[in-house]
């Protein structure tokens, strides 16, 4: 998730973004993951649109998710049209054609490929490498020179 937010922050001036919430991947009443329990992300598979809307709002508020956001309706029309579940990225160009088709998540969900597409078109956005703890540590005080 952090990757796609960073891409959004880097390229929102060049491209439009839309996140579409689709049916849950690991709800409590299906294939729940231990990591979801640990992270307190426990939801049953929504049976109504109101439940989907509630979970989507929980998500955006909890993570202060900045990307424009929408919700697939209970017919799963967007999911079906884009074979989107459980997660996937596409880029649609100005002519309305698929310009980039990401692989099926989770194993082939690769935001870096979308970044590469945007970088090829608009130029790469470089980020400073994170400083090492040693770089950020305050300088050690030097021992006082011995009195002569």
């Amino acid at each position: 998730m952090g990757d796609i937010v960073q891409i959004y922050e880097d390229y929102q001036g060049r491209a439009d973004f839309l996140t579409v919430y689709v049916r849950e991947a690991h709800p409590t009443d299906e294939w729940q993951m231990k990591s979801n329990v640990k992270d307190d992300v426990c939801y049953a598979q929504p049976k109504t649109l109101a439940q989907r809307v509630a979970i989507a709002n929980d998500f955006t508020k909890r993570f202060k998710f900045p990307l424009p956001f929408g919700i697939d309706d209970m017919s799963n029309a967007a999911n079906d049209a884009y074979a989107a579940w459980p997660e996937r990225i596409y880029i649609i160009d100005e002519s309305g054609r698929i310009a980039y088709r990401g692989g099926m998540g989770p194993f082939n969900y690769k935001p870096e490929e979308a970044r590469e597409w945007l970088a090829a078109r608009y130029g790469a956005v470089k980020h400073d490498a994170p400083k090492s703890p040693a770089d950020e540590a305050p300088p050690r005080p030097r021992p006082a020179a011995p009195a002569k």
Binding site: L18, Y21, V22, E87, I89, I91
Partner: peptide, 9 residues
């Protein structure tokens, strides 16, 4: 271009 991201919580 529209970057379209699908996913769930």
């Amino acid at each position: 271009p529209l970057v379209l991201v699908f996913g769930s919580f």
